[in-house]
């Protein structure tokens, strides 16, 4: 497992029904590309987050396939429709099989 993997997410606290909101996510992760070499010339093995998904009340918002060309600490910004109050579930899938999950609730006013 990569060390100190911390997801950070910005979701508005509340929205009106049917409103489109902007979500920003960032997860600290080295995203080792598998292209770099260490001091002795050995290739450092690839270790990245290869997939990210965001769901709201069981419905998919976005599903991103990530390759080694995504920067360290992958940042993503996207938009979602909020039809009702509920919970956003964010999931990151690591190459080594780890899955990081984070939830954010949103109220509808």
């Amino acid at each position: 497992m990569a060390d100190n993997v911390t997801p950070r997410i910005r979701v508005p606290r509340e929205a009106s029904a049917g409103e489109t909101i902007t979500i920003k996510t960032l997860i600290s992760h080295p995203m080792e590309s598998g292209q770099r070499k260490d001091g002795d010339g050995n290739v450092i093995p690839r270790s990245i987050i290869n997939r990210f998904t965001c769901d709201f009340n069981g419905q998919n918002v976005i599903d991103v396939t990530m390759e080694p060309a995504i920067s360290t600490n992958p940042f993503l910004e996207f938009q979602a429709v909020v039809p009702e109050a509920g919970t956003f579930v964010f999931t990151w899938y690591d190459d080594d099989g780890d899955i990081y999950t984070e939830e954010k609730e949103i109220a509808v006013s």
Binding site: T22, I62, I70
Partner: peptide
């Protein structure tokens, strides 16, 4: 990367 948009994408 590939971005796949679901039904709730704004």
């Amino acid at each position: 990367g590939t971005f796949n948009f679901g039904p709730l994408a704004g």
